[in-house]
Simulated scan of single mutants.
Amino acid sequence: MIDPVILQQGSDWRAQAEVFDEIFFVFLALGTLVGTIVVAYTLWNVYKYRDDGDRSDEKFDAPTVGELPTGQGGPKAKKLFLSFGLSAIVVISLVVYAYGLLLYVEDGPSVQDDGDIEILVEGQQYGWVYEYPNGHTERGELIVPADQRIDINVTSQDVWHNFGSSELRIKSDAIPGEYNENWFSVSSEEVEAQGGEATYTVECFELCGPGHSAMKGQITVIPEDEWEEWYADTGEDSESESIESAGVTFDASAASGVSA
């Protein structure tokens, strides 16, 4: 089993996107390798045992339905059980490898009691509201620091929504009266690669009404020192620009073709 501690060395925590990309690459590479070997071996046997007209039916050891191809002397059985054994090793190894990584994705990296940031995410027709621990509220844009584990509690104020970002590989149901926990993190290297400010698109992945397609937002990741300065300037119960100015408003009657 892969120890999740291996995946969370200080600021070198593995983001969910990196973990899922790695799993995809490993399965793709191994699947391509095994598939190439199997197809090549099959084609080689097709050529080797082709009917060239010289075969004698008396020497042909035809398989029987329901009978293991043990053959005479057991060479066929050895090949059969060898293939079974190799297949079992490959499959079990992949299951253990992927399960270890998915445990890390589910639990997230370990941090001190006060080392992570918990943010309440509320969906509403048709936008996202983010409430920080000090009571500050942002609408449309979630601003977080790099190299930090960001915990989110996702819920809804009206109907079912689904908060997610394809780029960060996060996705959580937003259900009225319920809270779904998730987490994500972005490294400072990724922030620097995007020019000092990394941005990721937020979408609703649950059909929630005529304004569903317009229910978008943004996650903005900035260096930790800049975020601390920004966060210190936010007062309790303060609120950023309204949903209208954030560009996430939606006229439901216009979308449904009904004039106001």
Rank of each mutant, 00 (worst) to 15 (best):
Q8F: 09
Q8G: 02
Q9H: 06
Q9G: 04
Q9N: 11
S11Q: 08
W13G: 02
R14Y: 14
Q16A: 05
A17N: 08
V19H: 07
D21V: 01
F24M: 10
V26C: 10
A29E: 12
L30W: 14
G31E: 02
L33S: 10
V38C: 07
V39H: 05
T42I: 08
T42K: 05
W44A: 13
K48R: 14
D51P: 07
D54F: 05
S56L: 13
S56A: 09
E58C: 03
K59Q: 09
D61M: 12
A62Q: 11
P63H: 13
V65F: 04
G71F: 14
G74L: 15
K76P: 00
A77K: 13
K79V: 08
L80H: 11
F81A: 08
S83N: 15
F84M: 15
G85K: 13
V91D: 01
S93W: 14
L94A: 11
V96F: 14
Y99P: 00
L103Y: 08
L103F: 05
Y104M: 01
E106A: 08
E106S: 06
D107T: 04
D113A: 12
L120I: 01
V129F: 11
V129T: 15
G135Q: 03
H136R: 02
T137D: 01
R139P: 00
G140Q: 05
P145N: 10
D147P: 06
Q148H: 15
I152F: 02
T155E: 10
S156L: 10
D158Q: 08
H161Q: 09
H161P: 02
E167R: 07
R169A: 11
R169F: 08
K171P: 00
K171Q: 09
S172G: 02
D173W: 10
A174Y: 07
I175Y: 13
I175D: 07
G177A: 05
G177T: 05
N182A: 14
S185T: 15
S188P: 00
E189I: 02
V191R: 00
E192N: 09
Q194S: 10
Q194P: 00
G195R: 03
G196H: 01
A198N: 04
T199Q: 13
V202I: 15
C204Q: 03
L207W: 12
A214S: 14
K216H: 11
G217E: 13
T220E: 01
I222G: 03
P223M: 10
E224F: 10
E226K: 03
W227G: 02
W227Q: 03
D233G: 13
D233S: 15
D237I: 03
D237F: 15
S238L: 11
S245F: 06
A252Q: 09
S253W: 13
S253H: 10
A254H: 04
S256G: 06
